[in-house]
Amino acid sequence: MNAPLAVVTVTYSPGEHLRTFLDSLASATTRPVTVLLADNGSTDGAPEAAADERENVRLVRTGENIGYGGAANRAVALTDPAAEFVMVVNPDVRWSPGSIDELLAAAERWPRAGSLGPRILEPDGSRYPSARRVPDLTSGSLHAILGSVWPTNPWTQRYRQDTDAVDERPVGWLSGSCLLLRRVAFDSVGGFDSRYFMYMEDVDLGDRLGRAGWLNVYVPDAVVTHAKGHAAGRHPESMLPAHHESAYRFQADRHPAPWQAPLRGVLRLGLAVRSRIVVASALRRRDGADGVPGDDAPHTQVGTGERRER
């Protein structure tokens, strides 16, 4: 029999998304699966109901809203440390049949893969650019400035890798909405950096894995669909500032020298101004006819990350 696999998901009032997640998981792999719900304070009863109704689901209460990376780390620490792999996934993912087994097969082909991620589809069936380059200060800034007004600019295309062939390959970082993690690699870099409350923790993890000699491998033959942003889209006034703060942390950590203090100051000021602008725009869209903020509203800062359960 194939070895059991732990699947970790961070919940924050996930609603019906969690049921879809668990129902579709049954066809994603032939391995026995244990699901750990790292709950950051749900009030909708969905995590409790899932744990009561399903024998393979375990509820892990974090005690408070400790953020995405911190909650994921806490649940991963409760899994068998001898297990070779663990999955960390958002609860608003719908699995395609065999998707986990495709990731596991790719892990055998790439023994230096610290993380592997699937092709992620939008709810309308279009491909989401989930495998990207690690943003440097220059390309990230130009993407932030031009991404929403000139989506086809070369810096945004280079960063998002929209025009790259859809083939199995190492990339800079992978969407944290669905990751197969080699446990020894994840542990070797200390897991997610819990200083990131939400957003950018996947960019940071991919970058640190790469710096430690591991690969982040995109596996397009594995397919999932991600609803995205069911928590984030409701509260742009808190989510978008958190995203900009994470963007600052990511670049400040990589430019720590005393002589780079003026650069960090300019970066913080610029992101603060941009945060106010995009929050105002997102609130207008949320409260108007256009609905919740679009994908580029929270993502076009200096470096980007995925919408995340808190």
Rank of each mutant, 00 (worst) to 15 (best):
D23N: 13
A222R: 03
G210N: 14
A227D: 13
I100L: 15
R133S: 02
R195I: 00
R127C: 05
T225V: 12
K228V: 13
F250D: 11
G270L: 11
G147H: 10
L37R: 07
Y12T: 02
R284E: 13
W173T: 06
A26M: 07
P293L: 08
N73M: 11
G117A: 01
Q260H: 08
R109T: 11
G305Q: 07
G270Y: 05
A3L: 13
P154K: 13
S139E: 14
T43F: 00
R285F: 00
R310N: 12
G41Y: 10
F186P: 01
D290N: 07
Q161E: 12
L78S: 08
R160K: 14
V266P: 00
H230T: 15
H243Y: 10
P14W: 09
V292P: 05
G117I: 00
A232Q: 13
S96P: 01
R276K: 15
S175V: 02
P262N: 06
P236A: 09
L37K: 06
S139R: 14
P256G: 10
W259H: 12
L18M: 06
P154T: 11
L179V: 05
L181A: 12
A38V: 09
A28D: 03
V10N: 05
T30C: 06
S130C: 13
V8I: 15
D164T: 08
N40F: 01
D124H: 04
N216K: 03
R276L: 14
H255E: 01
N65E: 05
L205W: 04
G63N: 07
L22H: 02
N90D: 15
N56V: 04
S175L: 02
P151V: 03
P4I: 09
L37I: 03
S275L: 09
P97Y: 05
S246C: 07
V219F: 01
M239W: 04
T156N: 10
A261I: 06
A272P: 00
V86F: 02
N90Q: 14
S238I: 15
F192S: 03
A50T: 04
A289I: 05
L142K: 09
V273M: 14
L267P: 04
Y218Q: 06
L240W: 05
N90S: 15
E306V: 14
W110H: 10
P118A: 07
P111T: 02
S175E: 09
V189H: 01
V203M: 15
G303P: 11
P32E: 11
L104T: 04
A227P: 00
P129Q: 12
D287H: 11
R254I: 08
V93R: 02
P298I: 04
R158E: 12
S126I: 00
S13N: 08
P91G: 14
V292T: 14
S42P: 04
P97W: 04
I100T: 09
V57R: 10
P236H: 09
Q260N: 02
Y128W: 15
G114H: 02
A28I: 01
V134R: 08
N40G: 12
G117Y: 00
V88F: 05
R19Y: 01
R308H: 11
R234M: 12
A252I: 04
R310K: 08
P170S: 06
P258W: 13
